[in-house]
Design a protein around this nucleic acid. Structure first.
Length: 646
RNA sequence: GGGGACGUAGCUCAGUUGGAUAGAGCGGCCGCCUCCUAAGCGGCAGGCCGGCAGUUCGAAUCUGCCCGUCCCUACCA
C-alpha cells in the first residue's frame, strides 16, 4: 500500500513540476527518520533552488500550496530549510490496507543461476550463502510478478571431480563398483570430502602424481570412456543428489540442472567457437608464452588493459577452458547459441515440482522450454568477477551488447572462518593466518564447515530450546518446530549481511536465536497467530472486520503507536521493490526484522484480547491478523517458515 | 605493478540515487513475567563515520591524495 502511495505521489509531483516550472527531475520522496515529520517528505525544493534562483523554503511553500489537495494526503507542512512533510489520511489509508495490490509481470524471462557446487564433495557454508542469496533473490523476483527460471549448473567433468576420482582410484584403490556401493549409502558427499582433501594433500607432496593422475582421469572423463569416466559419473551424480537434498532442507529448489558433460557432448562449445572466430572476438596467438592458444584480447574485458593482456579461451592442446564453456552456456541462456540440451526429469525427486536435468540423448518426455532469457543473473562469488567480465565481454564481442548488459554478475563476498570457529573445529591455523581476522575455507585442505553439520547443529540447539518451553509436546512436533527454527536462523544469518561483506563465520553467532536473528522474526509471527487462535478459542470466532470503515480506522489510528505500527507493516511491497532494485536481499531481511520489532512493541503495549472497547478490540484483532499476513509474506520471500510454536 | 572491495559504538554490521538529532544486534549496567509465550519489552552508557583537502545551501554518502585490511590478476575452476 505504501509503495502504491509513493508511486502515485511521485507521478503527481513530477507532473506538477514539469507543468509549473518546466523541469523534469526524479522526485525524491523520502521516509523521514523521525515519525513526527510525517510519513513522507519531499526534498525537491532543494533540488530546484539553484535552477530557479530562489531560496528552497520559498519554493517549498509555493509547492505545498500549489499542490493543494492530493489523494490520500491529509496535510503537507513546510519544515526546516525547505522540506515538505506529508501526512497521510489515516482513515483512508487504514481502510485501504487490506486490498491486495495486483502484480504485473514485465520484462521477459529472468534466469537466475545459483548454487553451482562442484559435485565432488559436501556443500559447505560458502555454498550456503550462494544458494540462500540466489534462492531469496528468486523469491523476491517472483513475489513482484516476474517469470523466473532457476538453473543450477553442474560441472561434472571438471578438475575437481577428476581429483576425487583419482583419489578413489589411485589412493583408495577402489573400483567403480565399490565406489558405486559407497555412493548408495548416506552422506557419500562426506566420504568424498575426505577423499578430496587426502588426494589434494598427496598432490601437494607429489607433483608428478598430480600431473599424471589428473591427466589420465580428465582425459577419460572428457572422452566419456573408461573405468575412470564411469566412476566420475557415479561420483558426480551421487554428490549432486546429496547437494539437492541439503538444499531441499533449506527450501531451495531448482527448475533445471544443465551439466557440463552435455555442453561437451552436444558440442555447445563448437558452436560458440565458430561464432567467436567468425566475429573475430578471439584470435590465435602466434608468439609469446601463449602461442598456439585462442585468446581474447584484454581490451575486450577490461579498461586500461595492458596491451599484452589476454585471456586464454582455448589452450594450445586444443582443450577449451572453463571460461570458454561458460561463454557457450551464457549464449544458450539467452537463446543465442542455436542449440539446446535434451532434458529428462530427475528421478526420485520429491513430488510437487519436477526438476529437469540435461541429457545428451533426445527424450520423449515433454520438457518445458528452458533458457531464452531476457535477463540473466549469475550468482557467483566476487573472486570470479574477472572471469564473469570475460564472459560478458564474449557476448559483447559477438555483437550481443544488450544481452551483455543484461548479463549480471550477482556477486557476493566469501564466507570465511573466524579464528574462534577454527579453534572450535580443531583446525590448525598456519602462521601466516594467525594475525588475520578470518581464515578462508578450503575444500582442498578439508578446512570448512559442512552445510549439513551446521543444519544438524542448529536443529539440535533449537530442539533443546523448544523442549525447554514445551516439554509435553509430542516429539515429532517439537522436531518440526526445531527444524523450522533452524532454517530460519540459518537463512536469516546468510541474508543479514549485504553482499559485499565478507562473513567471518562464527558458530556462536550463527547459533544465536536472540536479537537480529531469524528466530526473533519467527517469534513475532508465531505470537500473532497465537493471539488470533486464543481469541477464537475464547470467543468462538473473530469479529466481523467488514465493520471497519474509514471512520473507524481514522478514530483508532489516531493513536500514534498503532498508526506507526500500521505504517511499518504496510511497507512490504516497498521493501521488496527496494531489495530488487538494489540487488540486496539483505534489505528484505532487515525489513522483516523491523516488522518483528514493531510487532514486539505492539504486543507489549496493547493487550489485544483484553481490550474492553469493542471498536478498538476489533481494530487490534484486525491489525494482528493483517500484520501476520504481511510478516508471513515477507518471511515467504526470505524462505523462512513459521514454526507451529516456539 | 594493474583491477576491485572495504575502513561507522568494545564486537558484528545497517545506513535507502547527498538531506532534518548517524542506527540495530551482541556485549556491559539498571528495571519489567498473577496479565495474548521473557527466543520478549523499557532505560542508561558507549561515535572527530580511517586521515587530509575539495565539490555545495547541506557529505558517513560524491571527487582527489594519503594510511590500513582483504580479494582478483593461470594454458585451475
Amino acid at each position: 500500500m505504501f509503495h502504491h502511495i509513493q508511486n502515485s505521489l511521485q507521478e503527481l509531483v513530477s507532473a506538477h513540476l514539469s507543468a509549473r516550472y518546466g523541469v523534469t527531475l526524479p522526485v525524491a520522496l523520502e521516509e523521514p527518520a523521525d515519525p513526527r515529520f510525517g510519513e513522507l517528505a519531499l526534498t525537491c525544493a532543494f533540488q530546484l533552488a539553484r535552477q530557479l534562483r530562489k531560496p528552497p523554503r520559498m519554493i517549498a511553500q509555493e509547492l505545498a500550496s500549489d499542490l493543494g489537495e492530493m489523494p490520500g494526503v491529509a496535510a503537507m507542512e513546510v519544515a526546516g530549510n525547505g522540506y515538505i512533510n506529508i501526512r497521510l489520511d489515516r482513515g483512508a489509508y487504514g481502510a485501504s490496507l487490506g486490498a491486495v495490490a495486483p502484480r504485473a509481470a514485465a520484462g521477459g524471462k529472468i534466469v537466475v543461476e545459483h548454487t553451482n557446487i562442484n559435485p565432488n564433495k559436501a556443500a559447505h557454508i560458502g555454498h550456503l550463502r550462494n544458494a540462500v542469496l540466489g534462492d531469496t533473490f528468486v523469491r523476491l523476483l517472483r513475489a513482484s510478478g516476474h517469470d523466473v527460471e532457476v538453473q543450477n549448473y553442474i560441472d561434472n567433468t571438471g578438475v575437481q571431480v577428476a581429483d576425487v576420482v583419482a583419489g578413489f582410484h589411485f589412493v583408495e584403490k577402489k573400483s567403480r563398483d565399490e565406489v558405486a556401493e559407497m555412493a548408495r549409502r548416506d552422506r557419500f558427499d562426506y566420504v568424498c570430502w575426505d577423499v578430496y582433501s587426502n588426494v589434494s594433500r598427496h598432490f601437494g607432496e607429489n607433483a608428478a602424481d598430480e600431473k599424471a593422475w589428473r591427466h589420465e582421469t580428465l582425459h577419460q572423463i572428457e572422452a566419456g570412456e573408461g573405468e575412470l569416466a564411469a566412476m566420475g559419473n557415479v561420483v558426480a551424480d551421487a554428490v549432486v543428489r546429496c547437494h539437492l537434498r541439503t538444499m531441499a532442507r533449506l527450501g531451495v529448489t531448482y527448475d533445471v540442472l544443465p551439466r557440463e558433460s552435455e555442453i561437451l557432448h552436444l558440442k555447445f562449445w563448437a558452436s560458440a567457437f565458430e561464432q567467436l572466430k567468425e566475429r573475430k572476438a578471439i584470435y590465435l596467438e602466434t608468439e609469446g608464452p601463449k602461442a598456439g592458444c585462442w585468446v581474447m584480447a584484454g581490451s575486450y574485458y577490461q579498461q586500461d588493459a595492458a596491451s599484452d593482456d589476454s585471456k586464454v579461451i582455448v589452450r594450445s592442446n586444443g582443450i577449451v577452458t572453463y571460461v570458454g564453456k561458460d561463454i557457450a552456456y551464457q549464449l544458450w541462456k539467452f537463446g543465442l547459441l542455436g542449440k539446446d540440451f535434451h532434458y529428462e526429469p530427475l528421478p526420485g525427486e520429491p513430488s510437487g515440482r519436477t526438476v529437469w536435468i540435461s541429457t545428451s540423448r533426445p527424450r520423449p518426455e515433454g520438457a518445458p522450454s528452458f533458457g531464452g532469457a531476457a535477463t540473466v543473473y549469475n550468482v557467483i562469488d566476487s573472486r570470479q568477477s574477472y572471469l564473469q567480465d570475460v564472459v560478458a565481454a564474449g557476448l559483447r564481442a559477438l555483437g550481443y551488447t544488450e544481452q551483455a548488459d543484461r548479463s549480471i554478475h550477482f556477486s557476493y563476498e566469501m564466507v570465511a572462518l573466524s579464528p574462534r570457529a577454527c579453534a572450535e573445529l580443531g583446525f590448525e591455523i598456519g602462521e601466516e593466518d594467525k594475525g588475520k581476522s578470518y581464515v578462508q575455507v578450503s575444500g582442498r585442505k578439508g578446512l570448512g564447515v559442512k552445510a549439513d553439520d551446521l543444519i544438524d547443529k542448529l536443529i539440535a540447539t533449537a530442539l533443546r530450546e523448544v523442549t525447554d518451553r514445551h516439554p509435553d509436546a509430542p516429539e515429532d512436533e517439537r522436531h518440526q518446530a526445531a527444524s523450522a527454527i533452524a532454517i530460519g536462523a540459518l537463512r536469516y544469518f546468510m541474508l543479514k549481511y549485504t553482499r559485499n561483506t565478507v562473513i567471518a563465520f562464527d558458530m556462536q553467532e550463527a547459533l544465536s536465536f536472540e536479537g537480529d536473528t531469524g528466530p526473533y522474526v519467527q517469534y513475532a509471527a508465531v505470537r500473532a497467530r497465537k493471539i488470533l487462535r486464543e481469541f477464537e478459542t475464547r470467543n468462538g470466532s473473530l469479529p466481523d472486520f467488514s465493520a471497519m470503515d474509514a471512520g473507524a480506522f481514522g478514530r483508532q489510528l489516531s493513536d500514534e503507536g498503532l498508526w506507526q505500527f500500521a505504517v511499518v507493516a504496510s511497507k512490504v511491497d516497498s521493501a521488496i521493490a527496494k531489495a530488487i532494485a538494489s540487488g540486496e536481499p539483505a534489505h528484505a531481511a532487515k525489513y522483516a526484522f523491523q516488522l518483528a520489532q514493531a510487532f514486539s512493541r505492539f504486543y507489549h503495549d496493547y493487550p489485544v484480547i483484553h481490550e474492553t472497547n469493542a471498536e478498538k478490540r476489533t481494530l487490534l484483532l484486525w491489525l494482528t491478523s493483517w500484520f501476520g499476513h504481511q510478516l508471513e509474506r515477507t518471511l515467504d520471500v526470505l524462505g523462512i517458515p513459521v514454526p507451529p510454536y516456539m
